[in-house]
Design a protein around this nucleic acid. Structure first.
Lengths: 232, 232
DNA sequence: GTCTATACCACGATAGAC
DNA sequence: GTCTATCGTGGTATAGAC
């Protein structure tokens, strides 16, 4: 008891090896995905013993979750805080779709600019996690951040009151897809560098393109398309 | 020589074991992703010997590519054919974004309705492939279908002449993300069944939601957003 | 407590015998 | 064209040094 002075109070001063493991794992999981990354690679990169991954985290899956949690928990707390703030300022008026999206992306952008918090690497890993088929990852994301998701869903619902719940769910699903795929950035480097190398590091430029796309899609009017289909 | 009567002429009557392997592989890759799927699982499901996968296809990666090629080659040929047809009919007028998207999705929808060609399973696998981090998958998709991609990019460019090339590339990137993520359908089942079970099998309903979303995003006007950012 | 070396067991892929 | 033996490698458990 006396040997645990500041547990649950100061989360950061965990052991040196823990951090080295988390950093190395973050990098390698980001690069190769969960399955293709081995504990031997991770422990070698972190220059710690193979067994320490198991000792400190209890297994590969738990390590992966720890990598995500380290960055994601603070980010999501900030996301909710921002949304609360915006809603308070708006009073009775509902927020705009654009405002809500900003509240989602601003914390992510700040994180991506902070190398001490993982920088761009982490966002790429996050994108990868969202599209990974491993069930434990899916469940983890689903359970761990259900609060934030419902919180934002409610905000979107207020911003788009004319949309049926079902339609909104689909549109948010498409939105998440565009975001996750882009963050995962499997061919993002090519898209960017092929046309404008100076943009490669410019997350603001990136958001200036993504946000209008999403806003337009989310706000598009409901119309019954008894149209087109003229093919063949 | 005399023992290979119809090589390169008739592609479909390949050996029974080949087809069993392809079918089993399609199912399992779709379910677990490339890395997490083992040749032992595949050969067991196909009830063929473990080594036959190697014998007939030359390895796990080649088998995966064969699974994709079998369905994707015909589908993409049809996609290009449809686009050609539409453009011929339109004469000098450029196609609309919606028409182009229909040309992309119609062959996919037809395939998804044809159980003999893999049905929905294959589209899910395709979505998974698009988001898989494995480099060989990325290169394969990139190289194998570069023609179709540039073909469609040109059509979109004609439909959206006011958009800078760079902007168009990004928007198509977002589009692909929304599509791939949705096809991969990692949590699609939940979205669908939670709200309307009868929609679960209705691909037309699905397209009626996806297409307007994409059209709105792709066609959204270019505006310089010196806006918002009012958060914190 | 933390770290290390090492052993274990399961499994994937493949080459060579049949 | 099929079966099997083998080799490398993965995650994990344990025993003991510090």
């Amino acid at each position: 008891m006396a040997e645990e002075p500041n547990r649950m109070i100061a989360p950061s001063p965990i052991g040196e090896t823990q951090n080295r493991l988390l950093d190395a794992a973050e990098e390698l999981f980001m690069e190769h995905g969960f399955e293709a990354t081995t504990l031997r690679q991770i422990t070698a990169a972190a220059r710690v013993n193979l067994a320490s991954a198991n000792y400190h985290f209890g297994g590969k899956e738990a390590l992966f979750q720890a990598v995500l949690t380290r960055r994601l928990d603070p980010m999501n707390i900030e996301r909710v805080r921002l949304l609360d703030e915006l809603e308070t300022n708006a009073g009775a008026r509902p927020l705009s779709v654009e405002q809500i999206l900003w509240a989602m992306f601003l914390p992510a952008m700040q994180l991506s600019r902070d190398r001490a918090r993982g920088g761009k690497n982490f966002l790429r890993l996050l994108g990868r996690a969202y599209v990974d088929p491993a069930p434990f990852i899916r469940n983890f994301l689903k359970e761990q951040y259900a609060d934030m998701v419902t919180r934002y869903k409610k905000a979107f619902s207020a911003a788009l009151p004319h949309l049926p719940k079902q339609e909104l769910s689909w549109r948010l699903h498409f939105t998440l897809g565009a975001v996750a795929y882009t963050l995962a950035g499997t061919d993002l480097v090519q898209v960017v560098s092929s046309l404008s190398p100076q943009d490669a590091d410019n997350d603001e430029m990136f958001l200036r393109r993504l946000l209008p796309f999403l806003v337009a899609g989310l706000e598009s009017p409901l119309k019954d398309p008894s149209v087109v289909k003229e093919a063949t």
